[in-house]
Amino acid sequence: MVHEFEGRTEKDAIDAAVKELRLERDGFDVEIIESEAGGIFRKGRVKIRVHTNEPGVPKEKTHEESGTRVASYKAPSGGIEQEPAEPLSVDDEAKLIEFTKRVIEGMGYSSEVAVLFREDRKLGLRIDSEHASIIIGKKGKNLDALQLLVNVYAGRLGREDIRVILDSENYRIRREEALVRLAYDTAEQVRRTRQSVLLEPMNPFERRIVHTTLNDIVDITTKSEGEGLYKQVRVHFRGRL
């Protein structure tokens, strides 16, 4: 369960949470979502989000994706240690931005494209446009197509090792949060009904979010079904082992 509390200081907010939820101080996780330091005439204000352990739902999974923006793009480290890639040159970065902008322009929409984040082997680009909704498309279809082309183009620049991620209006983060919620809701339903549920077709990135979200839940298993890029995830009840 997630609860939100406010206080003048971080400690105040936590104290309020302890009192309200009748919890041990170390029985929950706290995430500070807003913090304003007090001034001479101004009261400080701290807003926190408290994660409590709900039966069946591991607490550390409940909302971790809503934390920092950039971190949420990170794939779980799979144990394979890679040498850091050579950073993208300023020139290549400019070319990728230019390509993205020109394709959108060619579609008939004006936009601004800027770097959202730079990580090892990853470049995030943010598209700002008044036509963002059509650039994103239904279920991100257009944004995915554009992203695929930008990645092919990155390969043309000799950087197959770099993955470019396009975002607009925080679509990727919002979609990721929605998928985590969907995964939990589906697991709950499967546990209740003991009937497996087949989710809508998703791309590999989206499926992975569902798989990893439910990976830690012992009585639930997930499996992809179907062929091609857009497979479907089926959520099964496994029972206690």
């Binding site: 579609m107 008939g108 929409y109 257009n142 995915d144 197509a145 082309l149 092919v152 091609g228 890029l229």
Partner: peptide, 24 residues
């Protein structure tokens, strides 16, 4: 092959982009 891609992925992406264009 560079404009079609494996399993036609690139061609499909270009078609998706086309269908999202504002056609006068």
């Amino acid at each position: 092959g560079k404009v079609i891609g494996k399993h036609g992925r690139i061609a499909k992406a270009i078609r998706t982009i086309l269908s999202a264009s504002s056609t006068a």
